[in-house]
Design a protein around this nucleic acid. Structure first.
Lengths: 412, 412
DNA sequence: TGACTTCATCCATCAATTGGATTTAGCTGA
DNA sequence: TCAGCTAAATCCAATTGATGGATGAAGTCA
């Protein structure tokens, strides 16, 4: 059931609205804020004073006069708040410290030699995060919390991941609680694609306002959905699962038994296998693939490198996968009616042009796209660390993003 | 940019929250409302008084005492407000008058002998709607407006439909404005599937609270998306387009050039054609299909009737289509992470069991569905007139549904 | 009949926005 | 150079809406 609201929440909401407007525009005056938010000048003045007192924004200059008193420009104070972000991946954990402006003020990569034991992983990551915070010299009282981006399904209600792919031996692991205990910080948990989408929304300014579909290419493929500046979590916290979108069936079988799920056709092992089957050993040798089961990570990198340099066999394999992703993206974009698709993830390296081309062609084919509004396909404004930065943004977003949530449920 | 809010809107919002709670529960006391909405008893008391004064709710009995004073039960006053709903279809327009409780207090069906001229259609429908309102004896001062459910793409910003399918000669028709002028009422316009979903949300009570995906089977196939009690409109007002979801490709070509769009594989003409191709003339004769291009409506009815009586050829054709719809639904449900799928639309008659079976199997196959939460597949609680009732609900929803919209943008 | 419960409301208070008046600061032209 | 103008930002009183505690209303139970 929907909750009612009260005045303190309204105040918090309007503060968040103003903060959001300052963030997305970069620099604005109070009058402009009033126009943007629909609030009166007086209210904006009050709200801004609170934000100044809280150290979240600063007066950062003056605009040239337009006939009267010059406007004093306001901008985000980068050191107003910080958050730690952790992107957990089977191969390594990427840890970042991000300031309110979205800039990374500290980062490190922690190789997970033995990812089989959740307790050990949490312990090591938590300690590394603590050291990173110290080293970055951030004011601990301004550290809002820690965000985690984890692959695969999670149980949103309890803050647990459930059998994440490529984490052998991990069953149901209450990651959020474990990190909260290990660090003493408030913790937010989301899947990597959703976290990346929030990061994009948080950092991307006006270019990422409104609604978009984020397609995340990492260990697997996933999507993050932002609608009307609000992220979609879904009933169980698993919104954006992209791997079960239907595509042209082939001979790859999903865990779920279907032969038409997107996931199995664009996983790294599948693409390496494709290359061997379609283009033979010679092409694989030329590219530098071993084809051994334990060198998937290496081979996947080599395949992408070869794609970047234009190797025809590599490009062919990537393009086949990109086409299937395009089919899925077409369905998703037309279902959600978004006019923007954003691509990101660390595994996008080398394959962006082909991905972008195929997805662009697919999503712009529908009648709505052609007659009512086109769909733009862009790359992440954050880049490689979008997972970790997104994880940190979970915390910032949770604290300062205006939304429904602020009005109805403070706990969320 | 997001708008701020102010106190009157907060008041309206809390009123809507309380009204929504009364509506979804059917009958509740003030204390229960306080618990449900998180508001204080005092506030609920105040809000309820306003709703009583406005004639939107009524005291409708008393609950047995639980040790103290008996609670006075509140329920929606059905005659508190009314809305007209029009479902525009190439074959006929269905017009209904709906009260605040969602009951149909008047309805009629208007055959569109010559749907080629938008002006004529609007004129005839508007006059018929006026007569229906008079005949239903509703207090005109309590008539909130007129909702239109139209097929196909629309331009949400201007309230126009754009080349709706099967309306020959209709280009870009500003339906909303035309109906507003013809009736003098506030007008809401949405596509049929979205309208049906809102109707379901409005009328379905607790069973349709939260989030769900509505699959609408009418002239074409479409979806309506309700997330956190709020309908998704999308950037251009076309959210829920289901016809371009990717499915197993065959030899049917979509307008967009693809052979893997769902739409062409489950349109009535395609299914009739399927039956002829796969099961031959004999089966068609048995079922009563003519196969002539101008008797699609008749043939489609016959095919569904035959399916209901268990004709194997008919069932086979329907099942093939249902499987493809299931593929698309699986992707949509896992992308949105909804735990409920609702089926409706006037063309569902006769084919519900097969549709439900196939869709249920498909959406419950994914890992999230199996390990975290199952997906229930249900039929519309409204039934055949879900399009028209949904159209009327657009108006009721727009006036009384609590949401984001009430807090940020009064115009929307 | 009296003690206890629960429902519902009254009253003073608090928090937040609003509208109008006022102050601050810069521009412009005689 | 100074008065007149314009625009930005703030001050102040009023209004609206939720809150917490106290009070009244209606029933139950021993």
């Amino acid at each position: 059931m929907l909750s009612g609201t009260n005045l303190p929440r309204v105040g918090g909401y309007n503060q968040a609205v103003v903060l959001d407007a300052i963030r997305t525009t970069g620099q604005v005056s109070r009058v402009e804020l009033a126009a943007l938010t629909g609030l009166t000048n007086q209210t904006v003045s009050n709200v801004v004073r609170k934000l100044l007192d809280a150290g979240l924004v600063a007066e950062s200059g003056q605009a040239p006069s337009s006939g009267g008193k010059r406007r004093t420009l306001l901008s985000m104070r980068a050191d107003g708040a910080f958050a730690v972000g952790v992107h957990l991946d089977p191969e390594a954990a990427v840890i970042v410290v991000v300031d309110l402006a979205g800039d990374v003020v500290g980062s490190r990569r922690l190789r997970l030699t033995d990812p089989g034991d959740p307790d050990d992983v949490v312990d090591r990551v938590a300690r590394a995060a603590g050291r990173l915070v110290d080293r970055s010299g951030v004011d601990r009282s301004r550290l809002l919390g820690l965000g985690i981006a984890a692959p695969g399904p999670l149980d949103g209600t309890s803050g647990a991941v459930v059998s994440p792919p490529n984490f052998p031996g991990w069953g149901r692991v209450p990651l959020a609680g474990m990190f909260a205990e290990a660090t003493g910080l408030p913790v937010a948990l989301d899947n990597d694609a959703t976290a990346a989408a929030i990061g994009e929304r948080w950092i991307g300014g006006a270019d990422r306002a409104g609604s978009f579909l984020f397609i995340y290419v990492g260990t697997g493929i996933g999507a993050g959905i932002v609608l009307n500046n609000t992220v979609l979590h879904g009933d169980s916290g698993n919104a954006g699962e992209f791997g079960h979108m239907a595509v042209e069936p082939g001979d790859r079988v999903c865990h779920c038994g279907a032969t038409d799920c997107l996931g199995p056709y664009c996983s790294p092992p599948a693409l390496i296998d494709d290359l061997l089957r379609l283009h033979g050993r010679a092409a694989a040798d030329r590219i530098g693939l071993t084809g051994a089961p334990d060198s998937v990570h290496h081979d996947w990198k080599a395949l992408r490198r070869a794609t970047r340099t234009g190797d025809p066999a590599a490009c062919d394999v990537i393009r086949r996968a990109a086409r299937r992703i395009g089919e899925a993206a077409r369905g998703a974009a037309s279902l959600l009616d978004v006019s923007r698709v954003v691509l990101g993830g660390e595994a996008l390296h080398g394959i962006e042009p082909i991905m972008r081309e195929e997805i662009d062609a697919a999503v712009n084919r529908t009648s709505v796209a052609r007659t009512i509004r086109a769909v733009t396909v862009e790359q992440s404004v954050i880049g490689d660390t979008v997972g970790a930065v997104g994880a940190a943004s979970l915390v910032l977003h949770g604290n300062y993003a205006p939304g429904w949530r602020m009005l109805t449920d403070v706990s969320g």
